[in-house]
Design a protein around this nucleic acid. Sequence first.
DNA 1: AATACGGGGAG
DNA 2: CTCCCAGTATT
Length: 398
Amino acid sequence: MLAETVVAPTLQTPAGRHGLQRQMLKWYACAGRQLPWRQSRDPYRIWLSEIMLQQTTVAAVIPYFERFTAAFPDVKALAAAPLDDVLRLWEGLGYYSRARNLHRAAGLVVSEHGGQFPADAVQLQKLPGIGRYTAGAIASFAFDLPAPIVEANTERLYARLLGLQLDVRSAAGQKQLWAFAESIVSTERPGDFNQSVMDLGARICTPTSPRCSDCPVREYCGAFRLGLQHELPRKPPRAPVTAIAELAVIPMRVQQGRRQFLLRRRDTGERWAGMWDAYREETQPEILDALPVSAFQTKPRSRVGSLFSAEHEQLPAATLERVKQQSGAVLGAVTAALQLTYAVTRFKVRLTAVVCRVHQSPRSLPDGWSWHAQEDLGELPLSKTGRQITDWLQQFGN
DNA sequence: AATACGGGGAG
DNA sequence: CTCCCAGTATT
């Protein structure tokens, strides 16, 4: 008698892949996440959510998505809005080039596509801020086109299914993952299928402690078969964090009984481009240590607002010179200081911000610089750190 | 191929 | 603390 060999399901054949697709869609129907951007097929809302979700957790995005769609219900409204309004709504979400590209892309959709998103991954990817993943996501979620996707969840899931030993970030690894994504995407229900693999990655095939016992496709999984689910996907070591010291200087003046602070708008190409910020310079930790604020630092790593006791504490002469050169302001005594730490990309920054009186303000300020009334600081688009500084500035005199 | 780009959440 | 997150653009 011919022994009927029980073969593990394989993803090498169309039949095997179809089996996985069916399992995924079945699982998704009862275990898929309910998310605000899944309530419609509106390409605008799907696009917006996808941009917000780039390198950003679902939990962080939800409140931004709600506020954003309330303010700008469609692509036309977004295109018509001033960039500053868009940046202000994006504030705190990070990766601000996303907001600038979003605004640019909205303008292009209106001007080049008659206000309609193209139902085509290739066309979508030509829009700023839309790469291969996002183009595939919009094409499949909004238009139900069989476009492949590879992002954090699918990358992990597919690397495990394949038992992929390559570094998933390498060109060779990415090539394999995209080829697999292309081969596995359902031609019948590509939108639901792509969302199902993302949800499985998020809920079952998690980075640490994957819940293989609950996984509907573990019989297809190379990593599970080999017991490598904790080893895969393989990633290169992370770049080490560099410690940095930073000094921020905020000139202050009083005009008609109102406090004003001198700030600048960050240039294109800089970090936090287009957003307002205090003058900042990288410095040496010793410089910060030498500032008398340290006497007031009671809690490390926390914000400490403190008035200097002496009226004539001064900053390093070189700093005063740079502030004068860049802003035109001639500074007087330091009146207050704030210490905080923050992390940005691969840097961990210890920042001391000081408020200085102004001896002399130039008749006309250099490009990008301007005085801002204390009560108007809330209107400005600022980075997280910038907001921490202005929140502190708003307490002055109270 | 490497690097820059933010901030928050989870373990 | 560390790791990770619905990546993209630039060099």
